[in-house]
Design a protein around this nucleic acid. Structure first.
Lengths: 349, 349
DNA sequence: CTGAAAGCGCTTACAG
DNA sequence: CTGAAAGCGCTTACAG
């Protein structure tokens, strides 16, 4: 079987014995077309199983009805759910989202962004680590950019973010109330604002609550950006090998549920009990966190909401050629489960 | 700030004082262009920060360098990882994958497929439930289609699949060896071949091992297609409410880890112990399955491999205008963990 | 209500 | 090595 060349608007016009302008009018539900010719055209379209070529259309109209999304990867449920919500919202308004993943490899980022620009996406949403802020600003000269779950200080770029700092401050306050004093912290490096904000919240809260930060219990590692689960496990295993029990924190805050789960595996493997010997706190509230043993105390980020909100803002950004800056901050929520020793009165909040 | 109109090849030609044909030649690393004019052109490109318009290019060349992927959703890790592997492979050869999710809503499927055709993707990979086989066949008239993790009998369409039937036969044999007799089965309905094959494998193996299928312990529910976790929990809860313990299976096979995890929650909530009172088996081997309590016995599907293989086949399909049929079958693997009572000799296999 | 024609931003033979 | 011109498949004023 040989696939036929796709029919064009010219073929349809010939088949229906009308001009291509008329076919175009039918296609676009435009200008009064008589019922009769409309039927003729539609019949011809059916016979030839014609479908309009979007590229040709977009070259004329100057619009592509597509947006670009840049994320580290889609394998992390946090990204997957956010993107899904954003895509769904866009799709309902006949926009297609081009998803691109750069796996935290800087050399990919530029290539991906250029690809999106070549495709003339009408806006770009950037989630996570495009590390080269200058690059992002250049891109924003050409096409509206929305930063999702991050920001670039002083760039005048729109952003939808969570209030990471507050969430961590609350969490630390609760841990203190629960009797914890020696609070450890494990995170990817602080390149992204969302991650940095959490750490700031941690530091502020420790200070505010009169607790000392034990620097030997703070681990910031670049490895934790990807394969968080695996790398969290490895890092914790190494820590447990090197230290005596008294040198461990009483509770360990982490910047991701996946990291937390890896850490828990290492801890359990070393024969410690959670939360009896050490408490663990995650971040994201992915499905996994409610099914680990013990279940994981964490910070909930509402992916549905950030995804939808991002689309709303992107739509605003596309509307006008003049630039306006949107800054939206969403609240997170604390989820108390069994991986920390918490009094009932706290759990029931 | 007002965003400028994007520069075109004409602008570049003017800026560099050459013809647009020459600019095009530089862009496409084509025909001998003298070093000097090349530099002139590149400089002009820099000054205007010109980027070529893919739509215009594709309308001339007839190629879009993009493929379409259709999946139920990207929130299930099984789909997410497969797509990621496929996207990565495609990306390395300068192809972009347009990901579309139809959420098992039939009315979406046609719209999505048309959208992909309008965008003139050079091939389409379909994973999971596009239910209308006729629709798929029509699409395949226009553009090469690869079925991923499913097939359409007698359609002459290429497919990359797992050997689901064999995997289930092996699993049943192992369960029998472990002493299980009353084996239950919980799955989404059998609309898709991958799901149907598993059930066939189950039936065959039961027969082959001289075990009776207790039909009261077979649940096939449409609800389990989406939100598998939630809906698995609900279904199991209902079952536990309605039955005495003696009416439950000794071990329950499920068609997805997410379903299995929901089931385990319901079982534990009802006060039963796993695997002491009832064994549970999942399917997919997503990250979650190694962290539940108890950890989940399951069937591993190598997402990396099916994703990459799918790209390899898609590339083949795009190469020629004559149709050739590819049928590739991949092996799965059994993963023995703590959610079933299994003798050590089996676990160590 | 319908058609003829210009033009969107490119690539591709073809001259020179 | 470089340029002029045709043409890809559409939409959009503009006549009639």
């Amino acid at each position: 079987m040989i696939r036929k060349r796709a029919a064009t608007i010219i073929d349809v016009a010939k088949q229906a014995n009308v001009s291509i302008g008329t076919v175009s009018n039918v296609l676009n539900h435009a200008a009064n077309v008589s019922e009769k010719t409309k039927r003729k055209v539609e019949e011809a379209i059916g016979i030839l199983s014609y479908s309009p070529n979007d590229a040709a259309r977009s070259i004329r109209t100057g619009r592509t009805h597509s947006i670009g999304i840049v994320v580290p990867d889609i394998m992390n449920e946090y990204y997957a759910k956010t993107i899904q919500a954003l895509m769904d919202a866009a799709y309902k308004e006949n926009y297609t989202a081009l998803i691109t993943c750069f796996k935290n490899r800087p050399q990919y980022e530029e290539k991906l962004l250029n690809m999106l620009i070549d495709r003339r996406v009408e806006a770009i949403g950037i989630m996570g680590g495009v590390e080269d802020n200058e690059l992002v600003k250049e891109v924003a000269q050409k096409v509206p950019v929305l930063l999702i779950d991050r920001r670039i200080e002083g760039s005048g770029l729109s952003a939808v973010q969570f209030d990471n700092c507050s969430a961590l401050m609350e969490m630390v306050a609760v841990l203190k109330e629960a009797g914890y004093r020696k609070i450890g912290y494990m995170s990817e490096t602080l390149a992204m604002t969302n991650i940095a904000d959490r750490y700031q919240g941690f530091l502020q809260a420790m200070k505010g609550n009169g607790l000392a930060v034990d620097e030997s219990c703070v681990w910031l590692s670049k490895d934790l950006q990807l394969e968080k689960n695996q790398n969290g496990y490895k890092l914790m295993k190494k820590i447990l090998n090197e230290r005596k029990r008294s040198e461990l924190p009483e509770v360990l805050l982490t910047s991701s549920d996946l990291i937390a789960v890896g850490v828990m595996d290492a801890v359990k493997e070393a024969g410690f009990r959670i939360p009896h010997d050490i408490g663990i706190v995650g971040f994201d509230n992915i499905t996994l966190s409610n099914h680990t043993f013990p279940t994981l105390t964490t910070v909930e980020q509402d992916m549905e909401t950030i995804g939808k909100t991002s689309w709303d803002v992107i739509r605003q950004l596309m509307k006008r050629r003049t630039k306006i800056v949107h800054e939206i901050t969403l609240e997170q929520g604390l989820v108390f489960r069994d991986s920390c020793k918490l009094p009932e009165r706290i759990k029931n909040r």
